[in-house]
């Protein structure tokens, strides 16, 4: 036994004994279930019905942040992508790229977090793969997850489903994740009680769909924030969206960070929020269902879908607007690139 058990080595990716050891001691022990335990080349699944299928790559610095870590993020990201399609998430496949030198202990913490989050979301990790790359070729660990979920009969939210007259409902406060990550960036550090909102949303979606199967569209506003999510839905559905900026739920500390660093809460990332487009008649019951769920306690109607032709005097390719304090409208564009803290 001459190998260093403390950190991940290149040999762990060799496919030999060390590789097997890594998989068994870190991954299959933590994520154990009947399907994964077979360690076959592929998982055999029996599913009947309409499937939703998605994939998402996760990179985050730092790997551990207030309220979450890359392990939790990698499960919630995929679960939420399935959930906003109305699907019940079932199975997850995992691809892990590890930078040589990563402490094994760190990897175990991340895997443990994946286990806990998968349990919370009631999904199983059924197959996976690990690779080790040389130091510097990755930043700690990169995790890709793919997932499948079953779409119940009669449910069909889609990004193209928003209709004029729909109420736009946001499930909670904006920007918690973005600001939590920012708070640990070198050179920008600050203290706040703020935690990332990182959470699986499938149980919230289940409650919403129980209140109304007529939820037209849903999206989780991750990177690019609410601005991107609204622009995507508006474009895909061929509608315009008008939001009331004053009704947007934003925590005071998030607002403070935005003031401090010149950021816009509309552009900050969220990892446990969704925005839903619901026919006006059903908005009340869906909102009530959301508010009775812990992840939707601060849900609010933030605006409505309008006919683009009636677009309040704006023409051109713009579809998302906010009403300003002076009663006018301003354009909310698709965000460009990364939001950088600014000073001047």
């Amino acid at each position: 036994m001459t190998h260093d058990t403390e950190t991940v080595q290149m040999a762990h990716g060799s496919g030999g004994r060390l590789g097997r050891e890594l998989v068994e001691s870190v991954f299959s022990s933590a994520l154990a279930n009947n399907i994964l335990n077979r360690l076959d080349d592929a998982a055999c699944l029996e599913v009947q019905g309409r499937l939703a299928f998605t994939i998402d790559g996760h990179v985050v610095s730092p790997l551990f942040f207030p309220g979450g870590d890359i392990g939790r993020l990698s499960v919630t990201g995929t679960v939420n992508d399935l959930a906003v399609m109305g699907a019940t998430p079932l199975y997850i496949a995992l691809g892990v790229v590890i930078e040589e030198g990563l402490p094994l202990h760190t990897l175990k913490l991340i895997t443990e977090s994946m286990r806990a989050t998968a349990g919370e979301a009631k999904v199983e990790v059924v197959t996976g793969d690990t690779k080790v790359v040389e130091r510097g070729a990755a930043d700690g660990v990169f995790i890709t997850t793919s997932g499948i979920g079953l779409i119940p009969e009669g449910v069909s939210p889609s990004g193209r489903g928003a209709r004029p007259g729909d109420a736009v409902i946001l499930s909670g406060t904006l920007g918690d994740h973005g600001v939590a990550i920012l708070s640990c960036r070198q050179g920008l550090e600050f203290d706040s009680m703020l935690k990332s909102d990182c959470a699986p949303l499938n149980s919230l979606v289940r409650e919403m769909l129980a209140a109304s199967v007529r939820v037209h569209a849903m999206r989780d506003p991750t990177r690019g924030g609410l601005a991107a999510a609204l622009n995507e839905i508006a474009a895909a559905s061929g509608v315009a969206i008008e939001i009331e900026e004053e009704t947007l739920p934003v925590k005071p500390s998030v607002r403070a960070a935005c003031e401090l660093f010149g950021l816009d809460p509309l552009l900050l990332a969220n990892e446990g929020k969704l925005v839903a487009f619901v026919p006006e008649d059903d908005a009340g019951s869906v909102l009530a269902a959301m508010r009775s769920h812990p992840l939707g306690a601060e849900a609010a109607i933030i605006g409505r879908v309008v006919d683009p032709a009636a677009g309040a005097g704006f023409s051109g390719p713009f579809r998302v607007f906010a009403r300003t304090v002076l009663g006018g409208l301003r354009i909310i564009r698709m965000p460009v690139g990364e939001q950088l803290p600014r000073i001047c």
Binding site: E189, F190, D191, S192, M193, L194, P252, S253, R255, A256, A257, E259, L260, G262, R342, I343, C344
Partner: peptide
Amino acid sequence: MCLAVPAKIIETDGQQAIVEIGGLRKQ
């Protein structure tokens, strides 16, 4: 041109201070 926000001084230590802005604390 220059972003500045109201902040409350929570404690000082020589030329350094801890300030609070909307529940968020910073050096």
